[in-house]
Each structure stands twice: as structure tokens, then as C-alpha cells.
């Protein structure tokens, strides 16, 4: 399992993908930090984290697009599936390596936190809480991205479909605002990623939000496992 994790992780840096993702994330987090903290003169980073939701939504498909699609296209899945490793370990290794890349991106927040500490008194509990919240939000998006990547042989198709799905997820809130149907609003509120993530951004970590994201992650990892297994029977 560690072999696959290590290989997947390193593969982000043998191609431009890893660098591009890191650069894009840090660029946007820097811009938001400048406008929402330095320019307005506040130490609260909640605004930065709120704004980063959009960036996370667009960056994660780039991280996950190749994981299963490329393996199928290059037939390297034959090496993995004929090795003495179970499919769940393969899925989890790929998930953890994608999550690790994302965790690297989050280092930018630490740098910004340090910058704030130098200038004024930063609220580290909000920053750490937010980083935690962003990681479990990303875990859900990554598991969805992996699932989509396992459905196709083309990493481009995987990326586009993941974008679309992520945008649809963020549109759930708009639906609940405009629909004015009680039942629908209740449902969309319950499964709204943005709403639940918003709580983290404000510095509130609630068990129900954590359980929600962990459940979504586990569900899609399980579905990915099923897709890979199902293909053996096709």
C-alpha cells in the first residue's frame, strides 16, 4: 500500500500537474489574503477560507483526474491488479496521495498565519480549525474525483465531469434559496457542501458537519472500489 502511495505522490512531481496545482492554490490564497486581511486591516482569515471554497472546487479535479483514468489508458492497472494487493488498498493509497498533495497546498495558510502573527495578534484556533475543515472538505471532493476518474480512460473527461459535478454541488445552495419549497430546502441544506463548509470557515467545528464529510468520502471511496472490481467482471 505504501508503495502505491509513494509512487502516486511522486508522480505529481514528475509531471507539471503537482507544481501547477501548488502554484495556482498559493497564488489565489495569496490574493485573497492580501485583499481580505492585509488590505482591510483585519486578522480574521474567515473571508479567505470562504473564498477558497471556489478554488478548492476547481483544483481538486486536476489532482484526481489522472489517478485511475491514466492507469487504465496505459494498462498499468494490470500491474496493480495482478499484484498481491487488494483493490481497497489501491483506492485508499491513491486517495491518500491526492489528499497529501492538497495538504501541501494548505501550507500557504500557515505562512499567512505567521505573517499575521508578526503584524498583529492572529487567532490560531480559527486558522487551524479552518485548515482541518478544508482538509475534510477536500477529502470529499477528492473521493468524488477519484470515483469519476475510475469511470473513464481519459483524464480530460474525468477532469471536466468532476468540474461539472463540483459546480452542481455548489449550486445546491442557490436552488434552496430560489425554490421556496420547504422539503427541497431542507434536503439541499442537509447536503450543502458550501453551507457546511461555511461553518468551519467561521471557526465552528460541529460533529454533524465532520460526520457528513467523512460519510461522503467513505461512500465515494467505496463506490470507486466497486467500479474497479466490477470492471474485472465486464
Amino acid at each position: 500500500m505504501s508503495a502505491i502511495y509513494k509512487r502516486e505522490f511522486m508522480s505529481y512531481f514528475t509531471s507539471p500537474v503537482g507544481y501547477a496545482v501548488l502554484a495556482a492554490f498559493m497564488f489565489f490564497s495569496g490574493i485573497f489574503f492580501y485583499y481580505q486581511c492585509l488590505y482591510t486591516g483585519t486578522t480574521s482569515m474567515s473571508g479567505v477560507f470562504q473564498s477558497m471554497f471556489l478554488i478548492v472546487m476547481f483544483i481538486i479535479p486536476l489532482i484526481t483526474m489522472r489517478s485511475f483514468a491514466d492507469d487504465r489508458k496505459n494498462k498499468t492497472d494490470q500491474a496493480l491488479l495482478t499484484a498481491p494487493v487488494g483493490i481497497p488498498s489501491i483506492v485508499i493509497s491513491k486517495f491518500l496521495s491526492a489528499l497529501s498533495i492538497f495538504a501541501l497546498c494548505l501550507c500557504s495558510f500557515l505562512i499567512e498565519g505567521v505573517a499575521l502573527t508578526i503584524l498583529a495578534k492572529a487567532d490560531w484556533s480559527v486558522i487551524i480549525g479552518n485548515i482541518f475543515g478544508m482538509i475534510i472538505l477536500a477529502a470529499s471532493f477528492i473521493s468524488i474525483g477519484l470515483f469519476i476518474s475510475s469511470l473513464t480512460e481519459s483524464s480530460i473527461v474525468a477532469a471536466i465531469v468532476s468540474f461539472v459535478v463540483n459546480v452542481l454541488i455548489s449550486l445546491l445552495d442557490t436552488i434552496s434559496y430560489t425554490a421556496h419549497i420547504d422539503v427541497l430546502t431542507k434536503i439541499t441544506d442537509a447536503i450543502s457542501f458550501q453551507g457546511r463548509y461555511g461553518n468551519f470557515a467561521l471557526g465552528q467545528i460541529s460533529l454533524s458537519d465532520v460526520v457528513f464529510f467523512v460519510t461522503v468520502t467513505c461512500l465515494f471511496l467505496f463506490l470507486t472500489d466497486r467500479v474497479v472490481e466490477r470492471r474485472r467482471w465486464a
Partner: peptide
């Protein structure tokens, strides 16, 4: 089943670890 972006050595080391 070759990973094109790896060197021969690192690829064989990966397979070695993969096969435990």
C-alpha cells in the same frame, strides 16, 4: 504495464515494494 514517467530503477523498486 510501465509507468512512463519513472526511471527503470525506480519502477522496479516500486514493483518490488508492491509485490512485498
Amino acid at each position: 504495464p510501465l509507468y512512463n514517467d519513472m526511471t527503470v530503477k525506480s519502477y522496479l523498486e516500486f514493483i518490488f515494494r508492491l509485490k512485498k
